[in-house]
C-alpha cells in the first residue's frame, strides 16, 4: 500500500528526498511532465493542457522531526525539534537517525534519579537525548553528524475498525491521496505539487504556486482530530468516520467560498460524506498559496488525524478513501462546469 510506504519513509522539512523519490517513481509513468524546483518541490503534470481551468493540487512532503545539534562525550545526541513536535510525548520513543536510518531511542534521566518535583513535570527537549548505542563521541560520529535529522521509527499498521496507525500521516495521507488521483485520467490541466517545508512555516508552497500559476488550488492535508473519550464535541475540530473535513477558517486563511461551494456540490452530488473543520487554529499550505500573484482561489480538504505531530498517529481509512473520492468528484465537476463563480455577496453554505 502506497500510504504505508509513504508513512514509513523519512521526510523531515528540508530533507524530503526519500518521500519525493517514492512519489517520483510511482507517478512518472502516469505523468506528462515531472520536475522539481530549487527548493525541492516536486511537480507532476497530468491531464489535458488544452482545457481549463488549470488546477494545482498540493500536499506537503515533509513531517515534523528532530535535528541533531550536538554529540556528547558519552556518544548521545542532543537534538531540537524541526516543526511543531509535542515535547511531552518524546521520551522513550524509537527513532531513526540520519540518511542511513541508524536506530536510536530517546532517553531521559532515569526515574529513580528524578526528584519528586521533577516527576510531576513533563520533560523538555533540553532534558532529552537520543541514545544510538554508541560507546562514546568518536564511535557516534562514525554514524551520525550534527545536522542529521531523526524521524520516529513507527511501522504502519492497520488495526481496529478500519483504522491505521503510523507516523507522518500529516501529510502523507495527502500525498497518497494526490498520487491516487494523479493516476486517473482527467480532461483538465492538472499539476500535482508535492511541497517542501510546510511544517516550518509554509515555505515551499508559495514558490510552487508562483511557478505553476494555477487558476485554482486545492490543498490536501491531515488535520487536527480530538474525538476520543472524554472530549467534548465543541473541541473535537473533526470526527473520524465523518469523511473529509473542509476548511472554513484557520490561522492563515479565510476559506474561498467559491471553491468551498464546489467541494460541497461535488460531495453531495456523489453521496460523499464531509464535515467542516471546526476550528480557527492551525494552518496549511493554502495560507501561502492563496496570496500568490493576483490571488489564487484555494480550498483545503483534510483527513482527520488523531495524535497529529506525535510518534504514532491514527487515521480512519474510510475518511482517506472518501477524500480520494472527493478529489475525483471535484475534478469531474470542474470538467463539466469549469467556470468558478465569484463568491455571491453574503452567501455561505452549510
Amino acid at each position: 500500500m502506497l500510504l504505508k510506504r509513504l508513512s514509513e519513509a523519512a521526510g523531515p522539512s528540508g530533507f524530503e528526498d526519500e518521500v519525493r523519490r517514492i512519489l517520483y517513481e510511482e507517478l512518472r509513468p502516469h505523468a506528462r511532465r515531472v520536475y522539481t524546483d530549487a527548493l525541492g518541490n516536486l511537480f507532476v503534470e497530468t491531464g489535458n493542457p488544452g482545457r481549463g481551468p488549470r488546477v494545482m493540487l498540493a500536499a506537503h512532503l515533509d513531517e515534523v522531526a528532530l535535528m541533531v545539534v550536538q554529540i556528547d562525550d558519552a556518544g548521545t545526541l542532543r537534538f531540537r525539534p524541526v516543526g511543531g513536535v509535542d515535547e511531552r510525548v518524546l521520551v522513550s520513543k524509537a527513532v531513526f537517525v540520519g540518511p542511513n536510518r541508524i536506530p536510536g531511542v530517546i532517553g531521559s534521566k532515569a526515574v529513580h534519579l528524578q526528584k519528586p518535583e521533577e516527576r510531576g513535570k513533563p520533560f523538555s527537549v533540553e532534558d532529552l537525548y537520543i541514545d544510538i548505542g554508541a560507546s562514546g563521541r568518536e564511535q557516534a560520529e562514525r554514524h551520525v553528524s550534527v545536522g542529521d535529522t531523526a524521524v520516529f521509527a513507527t511501522a504502519f499498521e492497520r488495526f481496529g475498525d478500519g483504522k491505521a496507525k503510523g507516523k507522518a500521516f500529516d501529510d502523507r495521507v495527502g500525498c497518497a491521496a494526490l498520487a491516487e488521483t494523479a493516476k486517473k485520467s482527467f480532461d483538465l490541466p492538472l499539476v500535482f505539487a508535492f511541497t517542501v517545508q510546510e511544517e516550518i512555516g509554509l515555505r515551499g508552497a508559495g514558490p510552487a504556486a508562483y511557478r505553476v500559476d494555477p487558476d485554482l488550488a486545492l490543498v490536501v492535508e491531515g488535520t487536527l482530530c480530538f474525538d476520543v473519550a472524554g472530549a467534548e464535541e465543541k473541541d473535537a475540530v473533526t470526527v473520524q468516520g465523518r469523511g473529509p473535513a473542509l476548511s472554513i477558517l484557520d490561522r492563515m486563511t479565510i476559506a474561498d467560498r467559491a471553491v468551498l461551494r464546489r467541494l460541497v456540490r461535488a460531495a453531495e452530488k456523489n453521496g460523499i460524506p464531509y464535515q467542516w473543520r471546526r476550528s480557527g487554529a492551525g494552518a496549511n499550505d493554502a495560507g501561502a498559496i492563496h496570496l500568490v500573484r493576483r490571488g489564487i482561489a484555494t480550498g483545503a480538504v483534510s483527513v482527520p488525524v488523531r495524535y497529529i505531530h506525535s510518534p504514532v498517529q491514527v487515521v480512519d481509512l474510510a475518511d482517506y478513501h472518501h477524500t480520494v473520492r472527493l478529489l475525483e468528484a471535484f475534478l469531474r465537476d470542474l470538467e463539466e462546469d469549469p467556470q468558478l463563480d465569484f463568491p455571491a455577496e453574503g452567501e455561505w453554505t452549510s
Partner: peptide, 17 residues
C-alpha cells in the same frame, strides 16, 4: 467572529477572525 460549532441549545462556539 466565525461560528465553528452550534450546540443543541443554540449556543454558538466561535473562533476569532
Amino acid at each position: 467572529l466565525m461560528v465553528t460549532h452550534v450546540e443543541e441549545n443554540g449556543v454558538a462556539r466561535v473562533a476569532p477572525i
